Amino acid sequence: MRGYNISINQLADFSKSSEAQKRSIIKQQKVPNTFKTAWYQLAKARIKKVMANKGDIQPILDGIEVLKSKTLTKKRQIDDRTVSLDAMQRFISLQIPNLLKDYDYKVLKKVESKSIFIKGVEVIVSPDLIIEIEIEGKKYLGGVKTHISKGNKFDKKQQSYVATAIYKYLESEVAKNGQIALPDLCISIDVFGDGFVTSPENIDEKMKDIEVICEEVKKMWDAA
């Protein structure tokens, strides 16, 4: 049986949830619904493509046309399209970080692990995108994680937890052969919230908060 585990976006969600909501998150982690279809897959895939291509928004524009052209009858599909269209249109208005515009970079597709362990909890970071940028002969790593939810926006603190975990993950699990995790490239995106939030330079305070959250996850896990 799998041990304590939680995805980083759910950890951010957990950090500001009510007791009942926290129990629900834990139950979902303990017994995942393998038949559950993820929401907003096209929007997330198109945002990922934009981030992988130096901010070129053409994949978003194409995605908008694809969704508009579909004939849908099921309420879930119609709701998904409505929010996805709004999310992609909002993303276009966001200011892409300069580092992603000014430098060439490559996307790293194969990594050995998608998680880090914090206080005995497997935190599944699994960035949507991991990139490597070379600046003045040094290789820097960055990662992007997207959150799309109209009714459950992350605030800057929650996004900072996500960005911090990306930094810690890249530093401890991905970096090798002199690669350096760069805080400015560790990015949480919330298209309905505060847009882009990057990891702080000093992650100590945020990591302490995340450790406390992980301890609470363990306590509630055993009780759920």
Rank of each mutant, 00 (worst) to 15 (best):
T34I: 15
W221P: 02
V217A: 04
A87G: 00
L185D: 01
E211H: 10
Q159F: 00
I187Y: 09
K68E: 06
G3D: 04
D62G: 02
E173H: 07
F154H: 08
T73D: 05
P183M: 06
E65L: 12
V123C: 02
E205G: 11
L108M: 14
F154E: 00
A165Y: 10
A163L: 02
V31Y: 15
I60F: 07
R46M: 03
S126V: 08
K27R: 15
D80T: 01
Q21K: 15
V31R: 15
D155M: 07
K208A: 08
N98S: 10
R81I: 08
L100V: 09
Y4Q: 01
G195S: 03
S115F: 14
A45E: 11
L99M: 14
A38C: 05
K153N: 05
K219I: 09
N98M: 10
I8F: 13
N152F: 13
N202F: 11
L11N: 00
K153F: 04
K176H: 09
I180F: 14
V111M: 08
S126W: 11
S188Y: 11
K70D: 00
K153D: 05
R90P: 02
T164I: 00
I64V: 12
K119V: 06
I213T: 12
V121D: 03
I210T: 04
F35P: 03
M220L: 15
G120T: 04
L141K: 11
I187N: 05
W39A: 15
K157F: 09
A20E: 10
V121Q: 04
E65N: 09
T34E: 06
Q158F: 08
P200W: 12
A52T: 12
K27L: 13
F154W: 11
V217M: 08
M88D: 06
Y169D: 00
Q179S: 08
V197F: 00
G143Y: 13
D80M: 00
G195L: 10
V144M: 13
S199Q: 07
C186N: 07
A165P: 04
Q28P: 03
F192C: 10
K75Q: 14
F14G: 03
A87Q: 05
L72I: 02
V212K: 15
A43F: 05
E122L: 08
K145V: 08
I64P: 02
K114L: 09
K48T: 15
Y40H: 05
E173I: 08
S188W: 04
L100S: 02
V174F: 10
L108F: 09
E215T: 07
G63S: 02
Y161F: 14
S199P: 05
D128S: 12
F14Y: 07
N98D: 03
F35G: 07
E211R: 14
D184K: 15
S93E: 06
S199H: 09
G143A: 01
V217R: 12
L85P: 01
F154D: 04
K219R: 14
S69F: 04
N177R: 14
Q29M: 13
P32K: 12
V83T: 14
K109L: 10
A181W: 14
G195M: 08
V111K: 13
V144I: 15
Y169K: 08
I60D: 06
K75V: 04
V66P: 02
A87C: 03
S24D: 13
I25S: 05
P183A: 09
W39L: 12
